[in-house]
Design a protein around this nucleic acid. Sequence first.
DNA 1: CTAGACTCCGGACCGTGGTACGGAAGTCAT
DNA 2: ATGACTTCCGTACCACGGTCCGGAGTCTAG
Lengths: 135, 135
Amino acid sequence: MNGMTIAGLAKAGGVGVETVRYYQRRGLLAEPPRSGGTGLGGGVRRYGAEDVRRLRFIRSAQSAGFTLEEIGELLALDASHDRARARALAAGRIAALDAKIADLEQARAALARLADSCAAGRRGPCPIIAAFDPA
Amino acid sequence: MNGMTIAGLAKAGGVGVETVRYYQRRGLLAEPPRSGGTGLGGGVRRYGAEDVRRLRFIRSAQSAGFTLEEIGELLALDASHDRARARALAAGRIAALDAKIADLEQARAALARLADSCAAGRRGPCPIIAAFDPA
DNA sequence: CTAGACTCCGGACCGTGGTACGGAAGTCAT
DNA sequence: ATGACTTCCGTACCACGGTCCGGAGTCTAG
């Protein structure tokens, strides 16, 4: 069951082969030894369930707004058992998420008001610019 | 009152001079004729209240998640009175905002759960990876 | 054994939204 | 009218997260 090639890993993680290779370059995914004992030029790398787990973690953390650099730190922390630091990172990210969410909700409200007033009138310019004018 | 130079406009809009010039290149802001009637090499461009309004609009629309390209369309629409198209753009953006907000809220919840469980235990790895594992 | 598919790898390139650079020409206060 | 500060303009560069390229090596089916 440890016989996946890079294409299999990529598929399992829902990304492209090049993305996996990119994460390896960034140090987020391990580069297992290459098969083929000949030694000259090496063979093909094989991946297993642990690699898939790690790749999926990267994608999830990304969707939480972590940058790849932060994810690298998270991954290192997971190995090093530094819970305090991990919690600090999480807290920072939560605050950032809250701020971002508030921003987007404000924008959404402004946009909804705009669409409303645009639908209401029938002629003349849609009051788009006015709607966005500094309140 | 139409005597602002580019630095004044930039300041009024809360951006840098280079950003104003960038928007001009993108066609989002007009490039008024250059002063100094000599004609050879030209002089300095002057800006007024309308330019400030437009620049502020760009920043507001941007914070609502519109790309500069979409903002260009919005600006053109405002001039052309095509209310239906403007409403469609707004509706699309609102849907995108809703999706994004839902995403972030999900991420926030996951992260909060993580921070909790990390704070609860005292030794061993912080269950970061587990928390992000596919549900 | 050979063809075709897949892998490895470094480096170049992409889109988005700017930011920096550098020289020439314009403008303002003294 | 001299010196300091701006403006103008094209071009190059930045971060971010990939994405594509080309050539050599490897693996697998027939």
